[in-house]
């Protein structure tokens, strides 16, 4: 059933792209660059605001004196809020990079560029808070620092089998999504190049290389075990 839905979805995307191309549809993102940048900055500010709220909520929950089943519920709530915080901060970093790149490429006002750099710095600071927060909530765990060159290995080493099981499911789903997402990205970039006469060949090659490297890394990792 899942495969049928995926095939149908790809068919619909292909059909829409073909129809748009046949009708000489063009879209030039450069025209909307300023609106995109301002919207993204707004989204980043909201993301960081919610992250800050989550940060204080986790700290508050940690200091809650819960007993029996309530203790489990508090731990679950901390875990979920921490995961949300992590997602929001990662998203704000990616969006900050996007904003900075857009302002630099489209040569927008220096103010927007400075704001973009500021949001990037603030987002990075939030990732440091994230590590501090997890060290505060789980003091008995020897959580590695984000700056540690062997962060991934150390994190896996301190994780128990339940945590590894959850991570494995998450990583495998993300890996599959990355493959599909980059392929769609290549198709859309090709369509954009044709419709606007602005070659995206470099991005297409980079996306293709990333796909090959990611798949190669995965295959070699499982092959050599």
């Amino acid at each position: 059933m899942k495969t049928v839905i995926q095939v149908l979805l790809c068919a619909v995307i292909g059909f829409v792209v073909a129809i748009l191309m046949l009708n000489n549809f063009t879209i030039d993102i450069m025209e909307y660059a300023e609106v995109i940048v301002i919207t993204l900055i707004g989204i980043i500010i909201i993301l960081l605001g919610v992250s800050l709220k989550l940060y204080w909520e986790v700290k508050k929950l940690y200091n809650t004196d819960a007993k029996w089943d309530e203790e489990d519920e508090v731990d679950l709530l901390i875990y979920k809020k921490f995961a949300d915080y992590s997602f929001l901060v990662q998203s704000s970093i990616v969006l900050s990079v996007l904003v900075l790149c857009t302002t630099v490429i489209t040569l927008q006002s220096i103010v927007l560029t400075i704001i973009a750099i500021a949001t990037m710095i603030v987002s990075y600071l939030f990732t440091i808070f994230m590590t501090n927060l997890i060290q505060l909530v789980y003091p008995e765990r020897n959580i590695p620092n984000l700056s540690d060159s062997k962060y991934a290995e150390k994190l896996l080493k301190i994780s128990d089998e339940g945590e590894k099981h959850v991570m494995l499911i998450g990583f495998y789903k993300s890996y599959n999504l990355l493959n599909v997402g980059l392929l769609i990205g290549i198709v859309l970039s090709t369509f954009y190049s044709i419709s606007t006469d602005q070659s995206q060949l470099f991005s297409i090659i980079v996306m293709g290389l990333v796909l090959v490297i990611v798949n190669g890394k995965y295959c070699f990792s499982i092959r050599n075990k």
Binding site: D72, D75, L76, Y79, D160, E161, G162, E163, H165
Partner: peptide, 8 residues
């Protein structure tokens, strides 16, 4: 182990 492991 973690509470998550016990729960799973």
């Amino acid at each position: 182990v973690s509470r998550q492991t016990i729960s799973l």
